[in-house]
């Protein structure tokens, strides 16, 4: 139940982020919307790995190595999301640097003012 709820929230965040990226005219607002959608994707992936009544994939005195198979949740999506968060921050930094460059060129952040590649 918790997993389904978190997954629904993640899907809602992705949709909200896409809506913001498609309808906003300001480049910085589009980047903010993309980072919201990014968080939604992370939420969905982590929710896929969750299993009811199990605990985090860390072995200690509470979860011994022998009973790990029946006690821990799937660690693979977590490793995947860890990678995705770090790369997502790098991509956001790149988008921001390009937004700064575009502002330097046209002195405006309105996407409608950039008409060079329009068709």
């Amino acid at each position: 139940m918790i997993a389904q709820l978190a997954m629904a929230t993640g899907f809602a965040l992705i949709l909200i982020g896409f809506y913001g990226a498609l309808t906003n005219r300001n480049i910085l607002r589009m980047i903010v919307a993309f980072s919201v959608a990014n968080t939604g994707v992370h939420l969905v992936l982590v929710a896929v790995g969750y299993m009811n009544g199990r605990t985090a994939p860390i072995l200690d005195s509470a979860v011994s190595a022998t009973e790990a198979v029946t006690r821990i949740i799937d660690p693979v999506p977590q490793a995947l999301v860890l990678t995705a968060i770090v790369i997502g921050m790098g991509v956001t930094a790149l988008m921001l640097a390009f937004a700064y460059k575009l502002y330097e060129k046209k002195r405006s952040l309105d996407i409608g003012k950039f008409t060079e590649l329009r068709w």
């Binding site: 997993a3 969750y50 299993m51 009811n52 994939p57 860390i58 072995l59 200690d60 190595a65 790990a68 198979v69 821990i72 799937d74 660690p75 693979v76 977590q78 490793a79 860890l82």
Partner: peptide, 27 residues
Amino acid sequence: SADENLNLTAQYYAENTAKDIGAANIV
């Protein structure tokens, strides 16, 4: 629908991490 048991890859990691790698944190 959520899985009841770990899939094969995750099961391998859960069984062998402690004796092959020696790390407590499987991630």
